[in-house]
Design a protein around this nucleic acid. Structure first.
Length: 721
DNA sequence: GTTGCGTTTATTTTT
DNA sequence: TAAACGCAAC
């Protein structure tokens, strides 16, 4: 707690004037334009403290919304450190968890079952496949992902199936309606039907349905207005149309809405984010106060000058110029290479020497690129040169095949109507229920006008044959037994807070997975020869995740500041574990994996948002890569190119001390080598900030001598350690 | 249901 | 170039 605990300005200490203004503005709409590295989180944390301690707002009346679990965790931690235990009563949640919470409480008013399943990408695709099959859209001839994308886009813009159809027919102005849009418009209503029949919602629904509920249902609206009086939203530049409406509805007539963001870092337009939300905030919320945070505490003057120059070329933005009291810093290196291999070799060499010359840990370096595929060369070269690295991105834990198969089993247990889950596992491991049998069951279900799950129970031998029937009955028995044992485990875990060691649900999960035979199946698949043990471990980890979930639920009940008799508290269930899994797919230990002292970080520019490194390499800065060729010839080219430029801006502003920009003259792609030109954005950086050179140019002799001395001194010191 | 071969295609992805 | 996918044959 700050020293002057009695004064009303205690939470303003250590802040600059703009940050102070943001903290002390408590009533009415507020837009905080927080440039990169300007102390955004600090400002939010102090503002929450100010609301609680000075404005005397009850912590439970405050709602703070983020996009990522990581951001939510960080904010929770910092608020609790600064304010103390009562800050636990603040609702701090991601958009999607907030949606789940609202739907759990009020979803029955929309006809949702109490325990609904949440479909992430793979399941969405499964549901869409089922929907398309019913209306004879051949999933071999058409790319369902495109249809899925279109439907998702509609849902994010709050276009209903009826509107989607109308929107298409109204496009009679000569513009040819996209063939996929037509298919999507046909599939859309069916897809929604399938979801509801499975008792499921997709990720978009987690935002869309609560918004609809708030709009239509006076009672639900009042309940939420009673609960939250102050709403804050982080990373507002990434919100989409639904989230804008959600923000409006949640803040209600009090209009105590504080949004924080940076339009210059809006890089998720391709996923439906609307920069317009942050650009038009004052129009959406008349009378809004706008505060700009432009004092940067992260980067050198040169780095900021480059960032400012790059972003200034964008139109349609809130004017901002970052400034800093940090030192001028080293010149920015701009390096040309012959090939991507030369580029990677050069980065490796630079890291090795800089580490020794400046005595830096590997963790202070990051290599940032546009697309994941670019990481490969770096991985190979780093491996050869024994540079430890950490690759961020790629397929996540829960996308791994064996894990999602196991999760499908859990889902089939927890949500008996979940057709998508059932169909995924019905013949995995192989148990003699092939494609034709499944199709016959689907046919039977349609004829009887019942769901797939019920059809499995009621189908007879004359429809599918005796052997298949026996197989199905065995399968159902497996699930039924699993369900019985689960109920016992749930009853047990609801009773007592688990002590050390295993937990009831965790034990159940392990035992049930054993019975499914997934592990055996994984081990016997020759394709898994090398990875069998790792995959088997993943299954164990999944059970571990459930154990940790169980403990966490109980911990939440008894942690300081919480009320143990809170009526809202619910004991752990498998269904609860699954929705948490769907919303937060980080395997537990790796929570803070984005920061690691001992390894160089390799990641995309997108993943780098929000992070900082003292030494940053931006690689592959070529036209066609950044901006990406798809952006160059996108239909909304101008918009798209501005987003690419923002990507470069995000990259530059990750660097604290040193920044290296590089590009290749040639690069292997689609078979042969193609010639590349430097990124068009590079010319916007003033030359006097840059030290332009080719790959193999030596440093000036003076500097070189000095550095060599450091090199040997540091090497000695490091060896001595 | 599995295997192997030919064909296709290659951004970013907080939840 | 390589990996991922679909399809046909076993």
């Amino acid at each position: 707690m700050p020293p002057d605990a009695a004064s009303n300005t205690r939470h303003l200490i250590g802040l600059n004037p703009e940050q102070r203004a943001a903290v002390s503005h408590t009533e009415g709409p507020l837009l905080i334009l927080a440039g990169a590295g300007t102390g955004k989180t600090k400002t939010i944390v102090h503002r929450i403290a100010h609301l609680i301690r000075v404005a005397e707002v009850h912590p439970a009346r405050i709602l703070a919304v983020t996009f990522t679990n990581r951001a939510a965790d960080e904010m929770r931690e910092r608020v609790q450190d600064y304010v103390g235990p009562e800050a636990k009563r603040v609702t701090l949640s991601t958009f999607h968890s907030l949606g789940v919470r609202i739907l759990r409480e009020h979803g029955h008013r929309l006809g949702l079952p109490k325990k609904f399943a949440i479909y992430a990408t793979a399941d969405q695709l499964g549901a869409l496949k089922t929907a398309c099959a019913e209306i004879s859209i051949d999933d071999n001839r058409f790319d369902l992902k495109k249809i899925q994308f279109q439907i998702s886009d509609w849902k994010n813009r709050r276009v209903s199936p009826e509107q989607a159809k109308r929107e298409l027919s109204e496009e009679g102005d000569g513009t040819r309606a996209d063939a996929y849009a037509v298919l999507a418009a046909t599939a859309y209503p069916k897809y929604e039907e399938v979801l509801r029949a499975c008792g499921a919602v997709d990720f978009d629904d987690l935002l869309l349905l609560p918004t609809q509920l708030l709009e239509q249902d006076e009672e639900a609206r009042r309940a939420l207005w009673k609960r939250w009086h102050y709403v804050m939203i982080d990373e507002y530049q990434d919100t989409n149309g639904v989230q804008l409406d959600m923000a409006r509805l949640l803040s209600g007539s009090r209009r105590n809405l504080c949004v924080v963001g940076d339009d210059d870092q809006s890089i998720y337009g391709f996923r439906g984010a609307q920069v317009g939300n942050i650009l038009e905030f004052e129009r959406h919320f008349p009378g809004a106060r706008v505060i700009r945070l432009e004092q940067n505490y992260r980067s050198t003057k040169r780095i900021l000058a480059a960032a400012n120059a790059v972003i200034a070329a964008n139109t349609a933005r809130h004017e901002k110029t970052l400034r800093t009291e940090n030192s001028v810093g080293a010149p920015i290196e701009q390096v040309e290479h012959d090939s991507e291999i030369a580029e990677a070799e050069s980065v490796a060499r630079e890291i090795t020497t800089r580490r020794l010359m400046h005595k830096l840990p590997f963790g202070s370096f990051a290599v940032l690129y546009r697309a994941n595929a670019q990481s490969r060369v770096f991985e190979e070269v780093f491996r050869n040169r024994n540079i430890p690295y950490r690759l961020v991105g790629g397929t996540s834990f829960f996308e791994r095949k064996e894990v999602s198969d196991a999760v499908a089993y859990f889902r089939a247990i927890a949500h008996p109507d979940d057709e998508i889950a059932l169909r995924r596992i019905i013949n995995y491991p192989t148990r003699g229920i092939g494609r034709t049998t499944v199709l016959k069951v689907v046919e039977f279900a349609r004829a009887e006008n019942i769901g797939f799950a019920r059809a499995l129970k009621e189908v007879t031998a004359d429809v599918i044959g005796a052997a298949a029937l026996r197989a199905i009955q065995q399968f159902l028995l497996l699930l039924e037994d699993g369900r019985k044992e689960l109920h016992a485990a749930e009853a047990e875990t609801a009773l007592n807070r688990p002590k050390e060691g295993t937990t009831p649900l965790g034990r159940w999960a392990l035992a049930f997975l054993e019975k499914t035979g997934i592990e055996q199946e994984v081990r016997s698949d020759p394709r898994n020869a090398k990875s069998a043990d790792a995959r088997a471990d993943n299954l164990k980890d999944l059970a571990g995740t459930i154990t940790r979930y169980e403990r966490r639920v109980w911990d939440e009940r008894f942690e300081p500041g919480a009320n143990p008799d809170d009526e809202e508290w619910e004991p752990p269930t498998l269904s609860g574990a699954l929705s948490r899994l769907a919303l937060d797919d980080r395997p537990d230990e790796e929570e803070d994996d984005r920061v690691d002292q001992h390894r160089v970080t390799l990641m995309t520019l997108h993943s780098a948002k929000g992070l900082e490194f003292s030494d940053v390499f931006l690689v592959g800065l070529e036209d066609g890569i950044l901006p990406h060729s798809r952006s160059i010839d996108a239909p909304n080219g101008a918009e798209s190119l501005q987003e690419e430029r923002r990507l470069l801006y995000v990259g530059i502003t990750r660097a604290r001390q040193r920044l290296t920009l590089s590009y290749c003259r040639q690069r292997k792609r689609a078979g042969g080598a193609i010639d590349c030109l430097p990124s068009r954005y590079l010319t916007d950086i003033p030359q006097d900030l840059l030290n332009i050179r080719g790959s193999n140019v030596e440093l000036p002799p003076e500097e070189s001598k000095q550095l060599r001395q450091n090199f040997f001194a540091n090497m000695k010191a490091m060896l001595a350690e």
